[in-house]
Computed example of a mutant assay.
Amino acid sequence: MFGISTFALSIWLLKWFPVRIVDRFLLFVSRIIIGDTSRLGLHRPKQGPLELKSIYGKTPVLDVGTLAKIRSGDLKVYPKIKKLACNSVEFVDGRIENFDAIILATGYRSNVPTWLKDINLFSEKDGLPKKKFPEGWKGDQGLFAVGFSKRGLLGTSVEATCVAEDIASQWNSYGRCEFLQGQNIGIDS
């Protein structure tokens, strides 16, 4: 904000003001700078970023160009997913869309077992892959798990590299058309 790190600004403001006031200031300024994101389908939480971090351990997401891509139409925001099928997604508003790949960002705590019934990859106890790092990234039928290793960006990078190499290997051995026909994959913008 204003060329200053939001984190540094928050820490500086916390020297003189309580968390709620600093949060209100950060939310006010971000609304002026970014605008009303609910018009784009992005609804903000009621709590401020510092309160979210202290209560839930969630870190606010910083925009690095995503909002501009959403505003331009390069990225689309969809409502909640009602149902996934082989190559399509049904949303709660009744719309059905087809995708080549689906990538779900599930957040810091995994709720995957509540909606994905793949008992071979994820533990129903904690929602994490049953196999531990570095083996927990690959499931059956084109299902991959990235970012569940609890090893930060390095662990996520290792898993993402394994997934990319696996997909490239299949792509190269089958050819593009055969690979896409044999996969149940899609992208969720």
Rank of each mutant, 00 (worst) to 15 (best):
I4Y: 12
S5V: 01
A8V: 13
L9G: 00
F17P: 02
F17D: 02
P18W: 05
R20T: 15
I21P: 11
L27C: 06
F28D: 09
F28T: 12
F28V: 07
R31A: 02
I34L: 12
G35E: 01
D36T: 08
S38R: 04
L40M: 04
L42F: 13
K46F: 07
Q47H: 15
G48D: 04
L50D: 02
L50M: 11
I55F: 13
G57D: 06
K58P: 13
T59E: 11
T59P: 11
P60C: 06
V61E: 12
L62F: 15
D63V: 00
A68L: 08
A68F: 07
I70Q: 09
R71F: 05
R71E: 10
G73N: 00
G73F: 03
Y78Q: 00
K82C: 09
K83R: 07
L84C: 07
L84F: 13
A85Q: 14
A85P: 11
V89F: 02
V92A: 03
G94C: 08
G94D: 04
G94F: 04
N98Y: 08
F99S: 04
D100S: 14
I103L: 02
L104D: 11
A105Q: 06
A105M: 00
G107V: 06
V112Y: 13
T114D: 13
K117H: 11
I119R: 06
L121A: 01
S123D: 07
S123I: 11
D126K: 06
P129Y: 04
P129V: 07
K130Q: 10
K130G: 10
K131E: 05
K131S: 06
K132F: 08
K132Q: 10
G136Q: 00
W137P: 00
G139K: 01
G139T: 03
Q141K: 06
G147W: 04
F148R: 12
G152Q: 05
G152V: 09
L154P: 06
T156W: 13
S157E: 08
S157N: 14
S157Y: 10
A160I: 08
T161S: 11
C162W: 05
C162H: 15
V163F: 03
V163P: 14
A164Q: 01
A164C: 09
A164S: 12
E165M: 09
D166R: 03
Q170A: 04
W171Y: 14
W171C: 10
W171V: 12
N172F: 07
N172M: 06
Y174S: 12
G175Y: 07
E178M: 12
N184C: 11
G186D: 02
D188A: 04
S189P: 05
S189L: 12
